Amino acid sequence: MSKLSKLPNIGKVLEKQLNDVGIKTDEDLIDLGSKEAWLKIKEVDDSACLNRLMALEGAIQNIRWHNLSQEDKDNLREFYNSQKI
């Protein structure tokens, strides 16, 4: 078990949000996936944005979100846009 804030893109605030929605470890985050984790955060924080979604995916891949592949960024952007009300 490790602290989520040791992953790339995860600061103390995002770590607290993850913990608050039941995601306590990097294994929890990986098992759930970035989209589902983001949806859980979105339920408690309506300001959850595309950058936060990309940050979660980057953390799962253990890279800075800026370095995600264009395909991953496009996929996440499409998912994010599908969630707008």
Rank of each mutant, 00 (worst) to 15 (best):
K16P: 01
D45A: 11
D26T: 03
I85G: 14
K3R: 14
L29H: 10
I85Q: 13
E15L: 01
L7K: 07
E57G: 04
K6P: 02
G33S: 03
G11S: 08
E43P: 01
K84E: 12
K73P: 07
W38A: 05
I23A: 01
Q17V: 00
N51C: 11
V13H: 10
R52F: 00
D72N: 13
L68S: 10
S47H: 09
G33W: 04
E43T: 01
I85W: 02
K6Y: 13
Q17M: 12
D20K: 10
A59P: 12
Q61S: 09
L14C: 06
L32D: 06
G22M: 06
K40M: 11
L18P: 00
W38Q: 06
A48I: 12
L29M: 05
R52L: 15
T25F: 09
L53T: 05
S69T: 15
T25A: 11
I85N: 14
D72E: 14
E15G: 09
N75C: 04
V13D: 07
M54F: 11
S2P: 07
Q83Y: 07
W38V: 06
P8N: 07
R52Q: 15
L7N: 04
L32I: 09
E15R: 11
E36G: 00
R64P: 05
A59M: 05
Q83C: 09
S82L: 09
V44Y: 00
A59F: 01
I23L: 06
L53P: 06
V21D: 03
F79Y: 07
A59K: 09
S47G: 08
C49S: 15
E71Q: 12
W65I: 02
R64T: 00
L76G: 02
K35V: 12
I23E: 07
S82P: 00
L50R: 14
L14M: 15
D45G: 05
S5N: 14
K42T: 02
K3Y: 14
G33K: 02
S69M: 06
L4Q: 10
K24D: 09
L32P: 03
D26P: 15
E36H: 06
R64Q: 08
N19F: 05
H66K: 14
F79Q: 04
D26W: 09
L50D: 02
V21S: 03
S69R: 06
L68W: 02
A55R: 14
L32N: 03
D28M: 03
K6H: 12
L76A: 08
L7R: 12
L4I: 07
L50Y: 15
L76D: 03
N51Y: 14
G22T: 04
E36S: 10
I60E: 07
V13S: 13
Q61V: 08
E57P: 03
V44I: 15
K35M: 12
L14P: 00
T25N: 11
I10F: 09
R52Y: 00
V44M: 08
L39N: 13
L56D: 04
N75E: 15
S2T: 13
D26R: 02
E57K: 13
A37W: 01
N62D: 14
M54V: 04
W65R: 10
V21E: 02
I41G: 01
S2V: 11
E57R: 09
K16G: 06
E78L: 10
N67C: 03
S5Y: 15
S5W: 12
D28K: 01
K84C: 02
I41D: 05
D74T: 09
L29F: 06
K84V: 10
K42W: 11
